[in-house]
Write a protein that binds this DNA or RNA. Structure first.
Lengths: 115, 115
DNA sequence: TGTAAATTACGAACAATTATGTGACTGCCC
DNA sequence: GGGCAGTCACATAATTGTTCGTAATTTACA
């Protein structure tokens, strides 16, 4: 999903947030600054290449900031911007919505197993 | 994004809604039932195959219903479920958030063009 | 004290997996 | 002959992952 088709901001928002990792990364940054390696530990399944790529995408969109801490070894800190923090309740709401959806599905189809 | 990794409902919600079309289709169903061909007219860039596929995915997730209208020619109506309607304000909020993000970006970087 | 190994944050080349699209075709009706 | 709602086989585009290498510094251990 590289290109925009509808010009609708909803499509743009989804273009930014689609994919497996971006919302999860935002989620893991809720409690404050984290370093690259810490984010890898948070979700061990992500490859470093993808992590780099996804973080850069979020950075260039203005959702997070990337700060290189000068000194001894290279240290990089990632942190939500104000806009990033505003996103948090929205993705939480999506998670809640999904859980509610699942509950409905289970309640609506009891005849599948019961007689 | 076929598989789940984190088990987090946020990831599940994104797995359901990721991609170019799904949120747009929900959006176009806000004002009520629509038929297949009507949805194609709403967004002419979607291919019929993908439209079918995306609608089926939303249906099997419980976001929309698919109703075949019996009679003469094949007629199919798609409509948001109650859960689908609950999703609407969330994706609208995402659109608003994105617009706000864009405004910030423009306000934050005036030095790029000004002296 | 010296050397090997690990950590940190990547970049480049390549490979696999998913998503999306095209064109041809169907059966039905007016 | 054209609209409706698809299906099927195929093709391309986009996303996501794997492997290898880098440069610096810190720790492990003999």
């Amino acid at each position: 999903m590289k290109t925009t088709i509808s010009g609708c901001p909803i499509e743009d928002a989804m273009r930014l947030l689609s994919g497996r990792w971006r919302t999860l990364l935002v989620y893991y940054l809720i409690d404050g600054k984290k370093r690259f390696a810490q984010l890898r530990r948070d979700n061990p399944k992500i490859s470093h290449r993808i992590l780099t790529h996804e973080l850069r995408a979020l950075e260039s969109a203005g959702v997070i900031t990337r700060t290189v801490i000068p000194g001894k070894i290279a240290h990089v800190e990632y942190e939500l911007t104000e806009a990033g923090h505003k996103l948090v309740p929205l993705i939480n709401a999506l998670g809640d919505w999904y859980e509610d959806l699942q509950r409905r599905r289970q309640a609506e189809a009891p005849q599948l197993t019961a007689s």
